[in-house]
Amino acid sequence: MLISDIMRTTLIKVRPEAPVGHVLIWYGGMAHVFRNTYVVDHCDRLLGVVTIHTFLSVIVPPSVTEEAKAGRLDGREDLLDALRRNMAAISETTVGSLMDCDHPFAHPEDLFVMASELIVEKGITALPVIDPNGVLVGEITRRMILHFLVQNL
């Protein structure tokens, strides 16, 4: 079974100059949660990946966490105010400045077990799938692989 037989083609793709604030607003309006935001050029060639983990680390920085742990944020509203101030400070940060340019990827003609091995080895949730020209054509996730295995074994 090839990756192309299992992968999905509905993805979040943005240009590197897209502001983080805009991407997060887009996330907030989505019914389905995507794990990766794919950064592509004008020809849809993959430049990098921004994971939900990366977004969380930027939205909830260590400084806010430390303030909360130290008891200096008194209650829910103080915590939310600190997070809102942080969001205002980072909202114009470009997605390109956050992307992982070395994120692993797969090809549509690879066997799905190769994607499974890479996902487990790297401890990631999803792999972008690119064609021979580097164009992003899909994504395969650990959940898709597990679903396929459960349905077919």
Rank of each mutant, 00 (worst) to 15 (best):
G134R: 02
S91R: 10
Y38T: 05
V39H: 01
A126T: 02
A115D: 08
I145V: 13
P61E: 10
T93Y: 15
I145H: 01
I59D: 09
I130M: 05
M1E: 07
P108A: 03
V23C: 01
R84D: 13
S4P: 04
S97E: 15
D5S: 13
G28C: 05
P19W: 00
E109V: 06
H107C: 13
H32T: 11
I145E: 01
T54Q: 03
T94L: 12
L46G: 00
G29D: 04
V23F: 00
M1I: 13
H53C: 11
G134C: 09
F34G: 01
D74M: 14
T65W: 13
F112G: 01
L83H: 09
A126I: 04
E121R: 15
A106S: 14
F105D: 04
A89I: 03
A18S: 08
M87D: 05
I119F: 05
A31Y: 10
L79H: 07
L153K: 02
V95D: 03
E139L: 04
D102V: 15
V64I: 09
L11K: 03
D100K: 09
G123D: 06
L47G: 01
F105C: 13
L56I: 12
L127S: 00
F55H: 08
D78A: 15
V135G: 04
V120P: 06
M1F: 02
V50L: 09
R84N: 14
G138R: 00
V95P: 03
Y38H: 06
D74I: 13
A106V: 07
M144A: 14
L146G: 09
Y38D: 01
I59V: 15
G96W: 08
I119H: 04
D44Y: 00
A126K: 00
S57P: 10
F112M: 06
V60L: 15
K69W: 05
I59P: 10
H107N: 08
E17K: 06
L24C: 06
T10G: 08
V58A: 11
I130K: 00
I25Y: 02
G29N: 09
V39F: 00
M114C: 13
H147G: 11
T51M: 04
L146S: 11
G134S: 07
H22K: 14
P128R: 01
L149N: 09
V33H: 04
P132F: 00
V50I: 14
E17A: 04
Y38S: 00
A89E: 11
E121A: 02
A88Y: 04
A68V: 05
V113G: 04
G21P: 08
T125A: 14
L47D: 02
P108T: 05
I6W: 08
E121N: 10
C101Q: 14
R143Q: 10
I25K: 15
S4L: 11
